[in-house]
Every structure is written in structure tokens, then in C-alpha cells.
């Protein structure tokens, strides 16, 4: 069932992305002011939408559901981790595509506008989440730590964006380059942009599904490796199992020692 869902989502993502590329690069006309640069806008806003709303929203939601006792299950933990990883990739892509667009339009790769700065901070925040996730611990301990980290990071996002917004408007007035995003989108361009949103959302769903399955498999491999090495040890000691306490002790407080 899940495998089938993954396959169909992947297929749909592939088709819509290909269509977006085709429409964006060949069918739609260049814009009046921005010329051919406008084509980046078929990708950049959809990527940012996935990164900022779908991915991190899903991560925060599943973290809350994990911490809430009634709905606690490793399902939410894995889903959150998958969403964060995909979100980090999409946030990085948002910054890269934005930079590529900004260089010819504004003349610089980077400006300290509120949006850019808070997106960059968001990227660092969730890189921290991934670093935390790589720390060895029992699945439950890791899930709890990561859920707390994701919620804290998610709550920080509006504060960061407020403060950066004030910082920039109060102190960099005049250097702000008007991105001119108010251009009227119409006809084939609107269609293409809408399709871009659909395509990127499908890509996101597909990547989360694949990443989730990978997480399950990785956990299973970890368990099996532990059992294999345990039985090897037992074989070495001539069938006498070493005291289980010695094996479990490091796990007792979340694998720290």
C-alpha cells in the first residue's frame, strides 16, 4: 500500500516537474521587465513554500504529536525527521535559487533583508536538529530530544523574522532593494507557477515517504546488527550469555557515558 503510494506520488511528481520545466523554459514568454529571469520564479516560490510551510510545519506538528502521550509513537518521530531533512534541502535550494535570481536583478548575491536573513537562520536551526539526531541514543531518547528541539526551533521562527524585520527597517532604510515581486502574473505564466507549486509539493511528499521508509529500515538494521553481534558474543563465550546488565547499562540513561 505505502510502496504503491510512493510509486504513484513519485511518478506524479516527475510528470508535473517535467511539465513545469517545459512550460517554464519553452512555452511561457519572457517577462517585460525581468526578461528571461522571470523563469526562475516558476521554481523559487514553490520551493520556498515547501521549505517554510510544508516541511517545517509538518515537523513541528509531528513533534507535538510525539510528545503528547496519547499519540506518542515512533511513527511521528520518523515522520518529523523525514520532514526536517527534506525541509533543509528545500531551504538550501530556496537560498540558492534566490541568490541566482538576486545577482542579476539586484546586483548582489546577498542582501541583509529580513526574509533572506531569517531563512538563513532557519536553515542553521534545522541543521542543528539534524546534528542532534545523529548523536547516538536509544530511539525513544533521540525522539524526545529531537521533538523538543524541533518545537523550540519552530517557535523561534516568528520571533527571528520579527526581530530581523525590525532590525532591517530601522537601520538599513534606503539600501533595501525593491524586489519588485508585484509584477502581474497572468495567462500561461500563472498556469506555470501554479503547476510549479503542485510539482514541488508532490516532490516533497514523495521525498518524505521515501525518507520515512529509509528511517524504518535503518532502525531495523540497527536492531538486527545488535542481535547478530550479541549472538556472536554468546557463541564466543561458549554459549554462556554474558550478563545482560552489562549490555543494557549504557542504554539506561539514553546511551550516555
Amino acid at each position: 500500500m505505502t510502496a504503491r503510494l510512493t510509486r504513484w506520488t513519485g511518478l506524479a511528481a516527475l510528470v508535473t516537474t517535467a511539465l513545469t520545466v517545459w512550460l517554464g523554459l519553452w512555452v511561457t514568454p519572457p517577462a517585460k521587465v525581468q526578461g528571461t529571469l522571470v523563469r526562475l520564479l516558476y521554481i523559487h516560490p514553490p520551493v520556498a513554500w515547501v521549505a517554510l510551510y510544508c516541511a517545517f510545519g509538518l515537523a513541528a506538528l509531528s513533534s507535538v504529536l510525539y510528545l503528547w502521550r496519547r499519540t506518542r509513537s515512533l511513527f511521528w518521530d520518523r515522520l518529523g525527521a523525514a520532514a526536517v531533512e527534506v525541509g533543509v534541502v528545500f531551504t538550501a535550494l530556496t537560498l540558492v535559487t534566490g541568490s541566482l535570481w538576486g545577482r542579476p536583478t539586484w546586483g548582489v548575491w546577498w542582501t541583509w533583508t529580513a526574509r533572506l536573513t531569517s531563512t538563513a537562520l532557519l536553515l542553521v536551526l534545522f541543521l542543528g536538529y539534524m546534528a542532534l539526531r545523529r548523536v547516538p541514543a536509544s530511539p525513544e531518547v533521540r525522539a524526545r530530544r529531537c521533538a523538543v528541539a524541533a518545537i523550540v526551533a519552530f517557535v523561534d521562527v516568528p520571533i527571528v523574522s520579527f526581530s530581523v524585520d525590525w532590525w532591517q527597517t530601522l537601520h538599513q532604510r534606503g539600501t533595501v532593494l525593491n524586489p519588485g515581486l508585484t509584477l502581474k502574473v497572468h495567462g500561461s505564466m500563472a498556469w506555470t507557477m501554479g503547476l510549479g507549486f503542485l510539482a514541488m509539493t508532490l516532490v516533497f511528499v514523495w521525498m518524505v515517504l521515501v525518507r520515512y521508509r529509509l528511517e524504518v529500515l535503518a532502525d531495523r538494521v540497527g536492531d538486527e546488527e545488535l542481535e547478530v553481534s550479541l549472538s556472536e558474543r554468546w557463541a564466543e563465550t561458549g554459549g554462556v550469555p554474558s550478563p545482560p546488565a552489562a549490555v543494557q547499562a549504557p542504554e539506561l540513561w539514553g546511551g550516555r557515558r
Partner: peptide, 14 residues
């Protein structure tokens, strides 16, 4: 530091 510093960036700014 990787976890805390981005979180407290608003404190640095404000």
C-alpha cells in the same frame, strides 16, 4: 553552540 546561538539571535539583535 550550534543549537543555542541561532535560537538566541533575536536577543543579540534586540
Amino acid at each position: 553552540p550550534l543549537l543555542v546561538l541561532p535560537i538566541v539571535a533575536p536577543v543579540l539583535i534586540a
